[in-house]
Each structure stands twice: as structure tokens, then as C-alpha cells.
């Protein structure tokens, strides 16, 4: 601050540049304008998600059925509990951030340090949770079959509960083939990880388990997925089944439309990247606080600016939570 010219001799002269209509410092105003442009980027992504969803409005995956896992609680169906926890963590770290800003206004170095530290911890928990969520999503749970037309066929029992491939399909040990890698043939030819089962094994498993039915992507009037009759199930799998899908990547996913996974990776990934950079910036500011940089400056405005960014990340998550998990 001491190096900048504070007094320009134009105070109060409206047309001489001495008037501050916004009553905000340059840095804070620019942070606001950055936030506006970043908000538009995120809206672009979410609106594109909306576009794809409206395009496939009668066959979009149901988010409650996709995100049902909670760490350390295997095999339990707890839709959205973990995402709600993540939301709460982020809101909580927003609160510690705003408390740090408040302590900064009172030039209370000890409190700013503590609250900044808690904010960083909250951010790390959130990023960690997101990594876990990604891993679970990529790994998949039940497995499915993709048809020639690119649709996903899932499996349910008579009561409509999901059935995993591993529960009714047995891999034929003799028919096992190894993944083709570059080193074992032409150097420019390779393939991805092979699914655990082949399509023939799935057909065989379906034939020998009377109570397993096929569920298509199409939504009924009540907003549930269509379950086919036993006869139709066999017909669908035999005639159209092409590929066994386990988990999700950018090309296929066992939950339904591949676009769902693409947007999931893209939007939550971009948000996660924001959280990560927020944590990094927070750490830098945290060390500046400890070193007493702002104490000497007699102004904790840097904390305020990074705080704005951090709250914005929270704000975006509130929207991602609604449009990806709730609606």
C-alpha cells in the first residue's frame, strides 16, 4: 500500500476522477467481474447438460439410482446422503472463510489463521470426497449390456431390484482371452480393458436364471425405467446385445446415456479443479497471514478477495448439486 499513490488531489471532484461510484477497491471489483465471467462458463456447461437432457428426456438416467454409495458402508443403498454431506462440508468451509474475513476486519491475526486453516481442511475433504465419488462412478456396480444402437440394458429381479452381472453370470474359464496390448502384436494396435464377462456368457446366465429381467433406458409415465417381460428380455439381449459394460468412461457407461457420464466428468471435474485451485490459493494466503504480511499492511483485503472466490466455488456447487443430483 505504501508504494501506491493514495492521494491524487482529485478527491470529491466528480469529473476529475476523484469520485468512487462503486466504493470498492480495484482488486475486489475485478474479483467480482471474474466471478461473473466464471459463472457464465459454468452456466454454459449446466445449460449444455440441460440441452442433452431435454434431447433424451424420456431415457435419461435417474441420478438417485446412480449415486447411492457412501464410503465404509458397502452394499447399502443410500441415495444422495454422501452428496448432501459434501454440500454441507463446502457450506461449512464457506462459513469458516467468512469468519476469517470477519476476523480480518478486526485485524485479529490468530483468528484469521485458525479459520483459514479450517477452510483449507474443508476444501481438502471436499476434493477427496469428489475423488472417491469419481472412483466409485468409474468402477461401477451392477454392470450392463450395451445394444447395437448404443442403448443400455440393465438387469432386475421380479420385484424390480437391481441385479448385478456377477450375481447371475458365470465366466467360462476356458473361453477367457487376454487383453491385446501393443507389445504382443503390431505396435499401433491395442485395446482397452476387457469386461469380466462376454456377451455369450450373459445370454447363458440370463437363460438359466428365470427371475432375472431386462430393464431398458426408456422412462415410463411414472418416471421409472421400463422393465421387459421374460420373453422380451431374452429376445432383446440375444438380438441386440453387443457389449458388456462395467462402470463408466467417456465412451460408454452402465448407467445409461454416455452423455450422462461425459457431463458428470466434465462439470464436476471442472468444479473440482476450481476447488483445488481455491485450496492452493487459500494455502498461499494462509502462509501470508502467518508471516504477518497483512498485519504489516494493516489490511486483510487479500483474505476477502480469496474469500469471494471460495464462496463462488460453493455457490457453483449448490447449482451442480441441484441440477445433477436432485432435478
Amino acid at each position: 500500500m505504501s508504494t501506491t499513490v493514495v492521494n491524487t488531489g482529485t478527491e470529491g471532484k466528480t469529473w476529475g476522477g476523484g469520485n468512487k461510484p462503486l466504493n470498492a477497491s480495484y482488486g475486489k471489483m475485478m474479483m467480482w467481474f471474474f466471478i461473473v465471467s466464471d459463472a457464465l462458463t459454468f452456466s454454459g456447461f449446466l445449460a449444455a447438460y440441460g440441452f442433452s437432457r431435454f434431447k433424451f428426456i424420456d431415457s435419461w438416467p435417474i441420478a438417485d439410482e446412480v449415486f447411492t454409495h457412501v464410503p465404509f458402508l458397502h452394499g447399502q443403498e443410500l441415495p444422495m446422503i454422501y452428496v448432501a454431506f459434501m454440500t454441507f462440508i463446502l457450506i461449512m468451509s464457506s462459513v469458516t472463510m467468512v469468519l476469517a474475513v470477519d476476523a480480518g476486519h478486526h485485524l485479529n491475526k490468530a483468528k484469521v489463521t485458525l479459520y483459514m486453516f479450517l477452510t483449507i481442511i474443508g476444501g481438502l475433504i471436499f476434493v477427496g470426497s469428489q475423488a472417491w465419488e469419481w472412483a466409485t462412478f468409474i468402477k461401477g456396480d451392477f454392470g450392463a449390456v450395451q445394444t447395437k444402437g448404443g442403448n443400455i440394458l440393465q438387469f432386475v429381479d421380479n420385484e424390480g431390484h437391481r441385479v448385478a452381472l456377477r450375481d447371475f453370470v458365470t465366466a467360462d474359464a476356458h473361453a477367457d482371452r487376454t487383453q491385446h496390448q501393443r507389445k504382443s502384436g503390431l505396435w499401433f494396435v491395442s485395446e482397452g480393458t476387457l469386461p469380466t464377462y462376454t456377451i455369450d456368457e450373459v445370454v447363458h446366465g440370463l437363460e438359466s436364471h428365470e427371475n432375472v429381467l431386462v430393464r431398458t433406458q426408456t422412462l415410463t409415465e411414472e418416471g421409472e425405467k421400463t422393465v421387459l417381460s421374460r420373453q422380451e428380455s431374452l429376445k432383446q439381449i440375444k438380438e441386440n446385445g453387443k457389449l458388456v459394460v462395467e462402470g463408466a468412461n467417456l465412451q460408454v457407461n452402465e448407467y445409461g446415456s454416455p452423455l450422462f457420464a461425459d457431463f458428470f466428468f466434465f462439470i464436476t471435474g471442472f468444479h473440482g479443479f476450481h476447488v483445488f485451485s481455491g485450496v492452493v490459493i487459500n494455502i498461499i494466503i494462509f502462509f501470508n497471514v502467518i508471516l504477518g504480511t497483512y498485519e504489516r499492511r494493516k489490511s486483510y483485503e487479500m483474505v476477502e478477495k480469496v474469500g469471494l472466490y471460495w464462496h463462488f466455488v460453493d455457490l457453483v456447487w449448490v447449482f451442480v448439486f441441484t441440477f445433477f443430483y436432485l432435478v
Binding site: 459463472a39 452456466s43 454454459g44 440441460g50 440441452f51 442433452s52 437432457r53 431435454f54 433424451f56 424420456d58
Partner: peptide, 16 residues
């Protein structure tokens, strides 16, 4: 944002 949402959702519904 409202402008963008209107255009994209309208178009998505049309494609459907």
C-alpha cells in the same frame, strides 16, 4: 444465464 438457458432448452426439446 436466462437467455442461454432459454435457447438451449428450447433447442433440446425441439431435437427430442
Amino acid at each position: 444465464i436466462l437467455y442461454l438457458i432459454f435457447i438451449l432448452l428450447q433447442e433440446g426439446g425441439y431435437v427430442f
